[in-house]
């Protein structure tokens, strides 16, 4: 797997869909491709957020620490992005992410990512649009819940 296939994967991420291929290539080049064994943690709840991950292959589980023990809240598959909210908001990890099977991911360093956002307004816009859309979805969900 080379840079070009990683760029293909990045294009599948909604947040990056609109971005210039050359910029995505830069994003991929400045990121690291890392392999997690099954059961290995990406990060734990409460850790400082230092990177976001795009899953290239495999699956990972998102879980929360609760008084009743750890509960899995979501499963991430190919081309999913995780941890991006933490690096944007500069807050500690809100959940734990563990590889469910041998998984390969692209690790996007926080500093590099923010550097790219400041440099390329197009990228920043794309990220903002994605976040706004998520907010809208959440609002809609809230509205549905309060109605029901």
């Amino acid at each position: 797997m080379t840079l070009d296939t990683e760029v293909q994967s990045l294009r599948q991420v909604p947040m990056f869909r609109e971005i210039d291929p050359a910029r995505l290539k830069l994003l991929a080049f400045t990121s690291e491709r890392v392999h997690f064994a099954a059961g290995q943690r990406f990060f734990s709840q409460g850790d400082a957020a230092d990177a976001a991950y795009v899953i290239l292959e495999g699956k990972a589980n998102v879980s929360l620490d609760t008084p009743n023990g750890e509960i899995t809240v979501a499963e991430l598959g190919q081309n999913a992005i995780v941890g991006e909210m933490g690096i944007l908001s500069d807050s500690p990890r809100s959940a734990t992410v563990v590889a469910a099977q041998p998984t390969t991911a692209l690790r996007i360093d926080k500093r590099v990512f923010l550097e790219l956002l400041t440099q390329f307004p197009q990228m920043a816009m794309a990220v903002m649009r994605e976040i706004a859309m998520r907010l809208e979805r959440t609002n809609a969900q809230l509205a549905r819940q309060s109605r029901s």
Partner: peptide, 19 residues
């Protein structure tokens, strides 16, 4: 590849030095 992906960055940008 370097010319392709680093072209848009201004000279002296930290990413240049690092990557």
């Amino acid at each position: 590849t370097m010319i392709e992906i680093f072209r848009g960055l201004p000279p002296g940008h930290p990413l240049f030095e690092q990557f």
